[in-house]
Simulated assay, not measured.
Amino acid sequence: MPNNMTAVFLPGNKQVDVRAVLVPEPGPDEVLVEIKASCICRSDLSLYYGNAVISGGDSNQFVCGHEPAGTVVKVGEAVTEFAEGDNVAVYLAVGCGVCHHCRVGIHYLCAKWKCLGFTMDGGNAEFLRVPARNLLKTPKGMSHLAAAISTDAFGTLFSACRKVGVNGLSTIGIWGLGPMGAAGTLAAKAMGGRVVALDPIAERREFAESLGADLVLDPTAPNALDQVREFSGGEGLSGAIDCSGQTAAHNMALDAAAPMARIALVGENRETTIKTSDHMIRKQLTVFGSWYFSIDEYADILALIKSHKIDLERLATHTFDLKEAETAFRMFDNRETEKAVFVR
């Protein structure tokens, strides 16, 4: 085991700092994971710019990255359910372990929670120390790259689709076809829904179509809303998921929704404006935020991936070495990549 490792920090102001730091030593109930794949997420750009969407610490002190996967290389003396050589992904939220929210598996609602890559060391490094309870054992045959994507990117949209109630009778709209929207297209199709995917970028629409979207549209086109309504038989969408975080997309989704529809807001946005009477009261819509997934959902996430032979690696358009972190974040920020992943 080496004494030092390469790790990536995001101090803000579009700076990327690649440092050599000590390899951490796991405590009694912790494990040390050798990271093989770690994804860049759009929320990481809040650290990149210096306005973190999850606050509570100095980002310059913590290794970034909240979507890692790898192999267990050392276990603490109290760890019994994991062993050296296990392939794992890592759940990003570290809770107290004993409050109600932790007991039911929603660690990110814990009042004392910490977040990988934001308020504690994350996975954009050669090694990561985490509590053993945060490990997600991955099945034989799943690559580390697919395992990393299966967490925040795919798992978040799986959970959103489940909350929306996607099934074989559903007609679902997905706004914003970056990595999250693309993952949502895969998840919604696997759950049986018909999907209309919307994004102003033509290449993203083409990619969503290749993933199985039934209809792809430019939401800024004058007749886009009419086409959505026609696609949904005139009644409107039974559900919608916004991954863009744009107020215009929120309002278009609400306009396109059928009465009693369910709308999940996934894209980060500090504030938005909607037509309360027309959308919420008259149509009796249910609009809610959806972030990440409960840890007990991971078994179902893996089951859907396996049963529908979902190729998550298709979502990774670019891979990088940790030493190329400055280039990786610059390209991701400039939308020259979709899902970008550090691999070893």
Rank of each mutant, 00 (worst) to 15 (best):
H279F: 10
A7N: 12
F293Q: 10
N167R: 12
L265Y: 02
M180H: 02
A253Q: 06
P11C: 09
G27L: 11
Q246F: 15
N87S: 15
C39A: 09
I281Q: 10
G178C: 11
Y108G: 13
S46I: 08
C243W: 04
M5T: 04
L109Y: 01
T119L: 11
T138A: 07
G155S: 13
L254I: 09
Y298N: 05
H100V: 00
V72D: 08
K283P: 11
G173W: 06
L10S: 11
F320S: 08
G181F: 05
P200F: 00
D199W: 05
G184T: 01
T138S: 12
N124V: 06
L315Q: 03
V73L: 05
G117R: 04
T71W: 01
V216D: 01
N124R: 05
H318T: 14
K74W: 03
V63M: 02
N251D: 12
S307L: 13
D321E: 11
V18S: 06
N13C: 02
G70D: 05
C110T: 00
V63N: 01
L47M: 11
F293R: 14
E271S: 15
Q227A: 14
L304A: 04
D86P: 14
L177I: 13
L217E: 00
A89E: 03
R344Y: 09
V72S: 03
P2V: 13
P139S: 03
C115T: 11
L47E: 02
T119H: 09
T71G: 02
N4L: 15
D321W: 00
C64W: 03
E313N: 13
D311M: 14
E326R: 15
D214P: 08
D333V: 14
G178I: 04
L237W: 00
A253L: 14
I274N: 12
R162F: 04
M331G: 10
V31W: 11
M1V: 11
H101K: 09
D311V: 13
E126Y: 09
F9C: 10
V90F: 07
N251G: 13
N51V: 11
V166W: 03
G239K: 05
G267E: 07
N124S: 06
I172Y: 00
M180C: 07
G236S: 13
T337P: 08
C99L: 02
A221K: 10
G233E: 02
M331Y: 05
L265I: 15
G173A: 15
M331K: 10
L169F: 11
F82R: 02
G178A: 05
Y292S: 14
W113F: 14
R262N: 08
K36P: 01
S43C: 08
G27N: 10
I281K: 11
S277T: 05
L128W: 00
L116F: 10
V228Y: 04
A303Q: 13
M252D: 04
Q15V: 13
V104Q: 03
D86F: 12
